[in-house]
């Protein structure tokens, strides 16, 4: 029987309350939402937090998906407590950005997707996290709340390393914001050993095309050691060029060159690097077809 070590349990009734609890318990407290990464780690005693602060009661504050005006344009706002299944079911999100549908359909399994949350996935900061690549490709912004108020961090600066994020011990990720641009297509391509497995490698692509030219390219990569889960060199290469097979293949090659994949039982490094190129190419091709 796998059972966690002893821990304190607190249920937050508001975001400020959650932050107050984080302040009270200090750095050995953990936020629990879906619990699909944290609780297995606790049962294996790889994680032994002193306290769990349960934010599952905060769906009113953190559980919305909505398109909001932002200055001249619009942004898609996704609450940190939105469940994978809710994001998958949100046509507001998936019509604008099919990359969400592509990715959420291959994240874990329906049971995990019913509980696991968008914010939890990003804050866990697993080097193989699918949504890290998705939001990196989308150029999203993370909204973080702490005792001093709310601040924003570009998603590409959100992940500081394996299992490390920009969220301080007394802060809470509350929302992800994605800029909405016309003429945009997006897609996600993942290779897994079996349905529900973490990716061997995966790539997301978001392309905006105006007058036959790529004006904005986002490429997200996961499980291949891409810094910040994205491929800036390949994005730069595409910007200002017309979309096309050759450009996409070259972007894939450049993206792969800048990865630092490590061998594990999902595959050797050279294979993962190959996938970085191949899946980037495929995601770009599909994204361009969806504009």
């Amino acid at each position: 029987m796998q059972v966690p070590a002893t821990f304190a349990y607190e249920r937050a009734d508001s975001v400020p309350h959650a932050i107050a609890l984080l302040e009270r318990y200090g750095p050995d407290a953990r936020i629990v939402a879906g619990g699909h990464s944290l609780i297995p780690m606790m049962k294996l005693r790889l994680a032994q937090p002193e306290a769990l602060i349960d934010i599952n009661g905060l769906a009113g504050e953190l559980g919305r998906v909505a398109i909001e005006r932002e200055g001249e344009g619009e942004e898609l706002a996704i609450g940190a407590l939105v469940r994978h299944a809710e994001l998958l079911d949100s046509t507001a999100a998936t019509d604008l950005f099919p990359i969400f549908r592509d990715a959420e359909r291959v994240i874990a399994d329906p049971i995990v997707r019913n509980r696991g949350t968008v914010g939890g996935s990003l804050c866990q900061a697993d080097p193989s996290e699918d949504l890290a690549a998705v939001f990196a490709a989308l150029g999203a912004t993370a909204v973080i709340q702490g005792p001093g108020g709310v601040r924003t961090v570009p998603i590409r600066e959100f992940h500081r390393g394996p299992y490390e994020t920009a969220v301080e011990p007394n802060e809470l990720l509350i929302q992800l914001r994605v800029p909405v641009r016309p003429g945009t297509g997006s897609a996600y391509e993942k290779v897994e050993r079996r349905v529900g497995d973490w990716p061997v490698a995966a790539a997301g692509a978001v392309l905006t095309v105006e007058d036959g030219v790529i004006t904005s390219a986002g490429i997200g990569l996961t499980a291949v050691g891409a810094e910040g889960f994205h491929a800036p060199e390949a994005e730069e290469l595409l910007t200002g060029r017309p979309p096309g097979a050759e450009a996409f293949a070259e972007a894939g090659r450049v993206a792969a060159e800048h990865c630092e994949p490590h061998a594990d039982q999902r595959g050797p490094a050279d294979y993962k690097r190959h996938l970085a190129a191949e899946l980037t190419r495929r995601a770009l091709t599909t994204a361009a077809g969806r504009i």
Partner: peptide, 14 residues
Amino acid sequence: TPANVWRAVQGRPF
């Protein structure tokens, strides 16, 4: 696995 098949194609099995 996908990795094993890809390496087999390359003649470099592990």
